[in-house]
């Protein structure tokens, strides 16, 4: 449990900091590094990554949308077949989650490759 929390916490903080300077997909690399350093099974690594990515992207989007009084999200929602502001936040969270999740999966599976070699 504490491992999961440390992976999520690492992705949240480092992902937020890196996102302010580096390309959007850096979150995948952050997630990969976090789950490479902290041991976790594939499924839980993916879930931790997904949760962290979704929390980071969804949370930031939610905060921005709230401060903006839904002005922009309602117009962007219109652009995407009239979906709601909340749906837009959920899509944001899902994309962030997916990218971070697969990043984390890659990281943990790389760790497995090395562990296998050490065991031999």
């Amino acid at each position: 449990m504490s491992r999961a929390i440390s992976i999520i916490a690492a992705i949240l903080t480092l992902g937020f900091l890196a996102g302010a300077w580096l390309p959007w997909w850096t979150i995948a690399i952050i997630a990969a590094i976090a789950s490479f350093l902290v041991p976790a099974r594939s499924l839980s690594a993916f879930l931790c990554g997904f949760l962290a990515g979704a929390l980071l992207w969804g949370g930031l989007a939610w905060r921005t949308d709230w401060a903006n009084d839904h002005l922009l999200s309602s117009q962007i929602g219109n652009l995407f077949n009239g979906i709601s502001s909340m749906a837009l936040i959920l899509i944001t969270a899902f994309i962030g989650g997916l990218v971070a999740g697969f990043g984390a999966l890659s990281g943990s599976s790389l760790r497995a490759v090395f562990q296998k070699r050490i065991q031999r």
């Binding site: 996102g19 959007w24 992207w57 989007a61 949308d65 962007i76 899509i91 944001t92 994309i95 962030g96």
Partner: peptide, 8 residues
């Protein structure tokens, strides 16, 4: 969609 890059 990235909240630190895109339309947000």
């Amino acid at each position: 969609f990235s909240p630190q890059h895109g339309f947000w």
